[in-house]
Amino acid sequence: MGGDGSKNKDSASLVKRRSLSCDQGFLSVPAQLVHHSVFRRSAQHREDPVSNQSRPSDSNPEGPRLEFISSFLPEFPQSFTGHKHLQILGFVAKGSFGPILKVKDVSTDETYAIKVLSKAEVLRNGVLQQSKEEVIIQRQVRHPFLLSLRDCWQSQSNLFIMCDYCSTGDLYTYWSLKGRFDERDVRVFAAELGSALGFLHDFGIMHRDVKMENILLTDKGHLRLTDFGLSRRLEHGDRAFTICGTIQYMAPEVLSGGPYSHAADWWSLGILLYALATGGFPLPAEADHGDMLSSVSECPYDMPDNLSPALAFLLIELLCKIPTRRLRCLELFQSQKFFHGMSFDSQLLQKSPIEPILELKNHPDRPERSMRGLSLDLLQNFECDLQNSPSNPADLSPT
């Protein structure tokens, strides 16, 4: 979160979104107590729409306002003065249910990105439990290649998720400027993102929206996977059925409505690496998931001749249409010939900067590319009840 970009409308993100419900209640756990810890979940966890019982009701004897607050507890605690030192610096991107803002904590001089979700929109779209799941997952995992959660809270009208701010931007912006990356740089990106996915899967977490727009970059050009809005916890052996994600990255088993598992994330990684190395996607995005499934089913996924045999073989392994035969675990991923002689140690991977990213950071077209047609008009009807927020949307400038 916090890169200089927005959701790519052309990629048909969020094809079909459902919320999660669970037989057990969710509990908030301080991040420092669960660093790299393993959590369990009920095997009966299902993907069902949120019940109307979770919505505020005027018949509540305590009043609709109290219920409008309690519905989001305990994952989003109510905050009155705890964030009075935050100063809004700009408008970073448009999220699904509100803007993503760049803010500064004037007491510490630290800069963060805040994802704002309108409570009314969250309830109207039936994604209350999914919004809670998003912050639960981010609280419970810490990894060098995942964007870190700093805090989350609620006001009367909105939910706030505060994460680190990555001023360099998102990978999609740089890919659109460069066209294709050298295999040496693709190898580093692949190792970092593969490490992040392997870590998440060991915790039973599927990301379900791996794409370049959700990869932010540090000041040295190394990646941070972000946006857990579609993620869910799924123990090994369980299956999911919700059609969700970004259509060009969705595995065939996801496009067909399941069942699918963590192997779908590795397919998305294969599509991403293919695009980075070749400058284009294997297939153009279709209008809906049915048409996309037909295209994916018919596509042979032949590798371009300009790819090295080692990279071509890795992509073939990742883009296997049969999930049980697909490369779908970190150990096998690391053993690929493409990574021969390379360390997967996070500190070593980040030691050297990614030169193409640093060279393009000051490209004159980067600000416009990063906004991707985003306009402040999208904020005209948005009420941001964050402390020290501007009096009107026009006071927010793109960053």
Rank of each mutant, 00 (worst) to 15 (best):
Q78K: 14
L193M: 14
T242F: 09
R187I: 00
H36A: 15
N392E: 10
H236E: 14
G204A: 08
F339Q: 02
S13L: 08
G257P: 05
N52E: 12
E355L: 13
Q140C: 05
Q154M: 08
P304N: 04
E62W: 03
A277L: 03
V38M: 12
E134Y: 08
P353I: 13
S57P: 02
L315S: 05
R326Y: 08
A263W: 02
L149Y: 03
Y112I: 00
A275E: 15
P56A: 01
Y260N: 00
G63I: 02
P74C: 06
F181P: 05
S57Q: 07
R150L: 05
M303D: 04
R180L: 08
V122G: 02
G279C: 08
T242S: 15
H35P: 00
C22W: 11
V15D: 04
R142C: 04
R142F: 02
K132Q: 14
C22M: 11
F199K: 09
K9I: 11
S6P: 03
R65Y: 07
K104R: 15
V38R: 12
C22Q: 11
G63L: 04
S375I: 06
P393M: 01
L89G: 12
V92K: 09
S308L: 07
K84G: 03
E368V: 13
S391P: 05
G2L: 05
E75M: 15
P367M: 14
K119N: 09
Q154I: 05
L89Y: 06
F91T: 00
L123C: 04
L14Q: 12
L332F: 08
E317H: 10
I88C: 14
